[in-house]
C-alpha cells in the first residue's frame, strides 16, 4: 500500500539532480574567492615582512616598503567616515522618524537610491569638479575623503534607516504615551537599540572606501610621493592606486610585490568585514526581542 510507485521514484531522481545542481552552483560561487585568496597567499607571502609594511618605497617603487600608501588609505578611510557618518545617520533619522509620507520624502528616497547607483568614476568627476576645483581644496586628502564620503552616503543612510526601523513600534508608542518627545524617544530607546546595525553599515562603507580607486584618482591620490602627507590638504598615496601603478605602470617590480600589496589590501578589507559581522552577532545576542 505504501510502496513507491514509478512516479515517486522518478520524482526522487529529479530531486537528487536538482539538489546536486544547486550545490554545484554554490561551490562555483565560492571558488573565485578561494582562488584569489590562495593565489595571493602563495605568491604574496614571500614579499611580506614588517619592513615591507613600515618603510618608504625605494628605487622608483621597485624596492622598499609600502608605508605611504598604507597610511594614505587609513587617512582616506578615516576622513570619509568622519564626513559620511554624521550626515548619513542624521538623514536616516529624519527619514525614518520624522519625515511624513509625501512627495518630498519620496523624491529624497529616490535620490538616495539613484546616488547608490552612480558609477564610482562619475563620483570621481563630481569630486574633481566640486571639492578640488569649486571649493578649492585642490587634490588633497580632504577632497578625496569627501568624494569617498559622498559615494558611501547612500550605504550609510540605507543601513541606518533599516537599523532604526528594526526597533519595534511598540517601544516608540510606549515612549510617546509616557510623554516623551520624538527626540527623547530616539535618544533613549531607538538609537541605543539600533546601534549594532548602524555600526555594521559604517564598517561596510569603510571596506568599500578602502578598496575604491576611481574616486580618489582625480581628487587626492598620487602615483608616487617621496613624503608622507603632513595634513589634510596634502596629496597622498593609497593602496588601491598603488597596486594599479606597480602592477601595470612601473617596470622592474619583483613579481611578489604586487601580490603582497593586494594581500595587505584584501586583509584590511576582510578584517573590517569580519569585525562588522562579529559586532553584529555580539550585539544581537544581547537583545531580548
Amino acid at each position: 500500500m505504501f510502496e513507491a510507485t514509478p512516479l515517486n521514484r522518478r520524482n526522487a531522481r529529479v530531486e537528487l539532480v536538482v539538489k546536486l545542481l544547486f550545490l554545484l552552483m554554490t561551490v562555483v560561487l565560492v571558488l573565485p574567492v578561494l582562488t584569489i585568496l590562495s593565489i595571493l597567499l602563495v605568491k604574496g607571502t614571500p614579499a611580506l615582512s614588517w619592513e615591507f609594511l613600515t618603510t618608504m618605497p625605494e628605487k622608483g617603487m621597485t624596492a622598499g616598503g609600502i608605508l605611504p600608501p598604507l597610511l594614505g588609505t587609513v587617512w582616506l578611510v578615516a576622513g570619509s567616515v568622519v564626513a559620511t557618518v554624521p550626515l548619513g545617520v542624521a538623514a536616516a533619522i529624519y527619514l525614518s522618524e520624522y519625515a511624513p509620507d509625501n512627495w518630498f520624502t519620496r523624491i529624497i528616497n529616490l535620490a538616495i537610491v539613484n546616488l547608490a547607483g552612480v558609477p564610482s568614476i562619475v563620483h570621481a568627476l563630481f569630486g574633481l569638479g566640486a571639492f578640488v576645483l569649486f571649493f578649492g581644496f585642490g587634490t588633497s586628502i580632504l577632497a578625496a575623503s569627501l568624494t569617498l564620503g559622498v559615494m558611501n552616503l547612500p550605504v550609510v543612510i540605507v543601513a541606518t534607516r533599516e537599523a532604526l526601523q528594526s526597533v519595534p513600534r511598540a517601544f516608540r508608542e510606549a515612549c510617546w504615551s509616557l510623554g516623551a518627545t520624538r527626540w527623547q524617544t530616539i535618544r533613549e530607546v531607538v538609537l541605543p537599540n539600533s546601534f549594532s546595525g548602524i555600526l555594521t553599515g559604517v564598517i561596510l562603507t569603510v571596506s568599500r572606501a578602502a578598496g575604491e580607486t576611481a574616486p580618489i584618482m582625480f581628487t587626492g591620490a598620487v602615483f608616487y610621493s617621496p613624503f608622507l602627507p603632513q595634513g589634510i590638504f596634502d596629496e597622498t598615496m593609497a593602496m588601491a592606486l598603488h597596486l594599479f601603478v606597480i602592477a601595470t605602470q612601473v617596470p622592474g617590480v619583483p613579481e611578489a610585490v604586487p601580490f603582497a600589496v593586494a594581500l595587505v589590501l584584501i586583509t584590511m578589507v576582510l578584517a573590517m568585514n569580519a569585525l562588522a559581522i562579529a559586532l553584529r552577532v555580539h550585539l544581537r545576542g544581547k537583545k531580548k526581542w
Binding site: 511598540a170 510606549a174 515612549c175 504615551s177 509616557l178 510623554g179 516623551a180 518627545t181 537583545k287
Partner: peptide
C-alpha cells in the same frame, strides 16, 4: 506631553522599554 503625564496608558501587549 503634559496631557500624557496626566493620562497614562497601558497597552494590549506589555511593552516595557528595553
Amino acid at each position: 506631553v503634559q496631557l500624557r503625564k496626566q493620562v497614562g496608558m497601558v497597552f494590549q501587549r506589555p511593552n516595557p522599554l528595553p
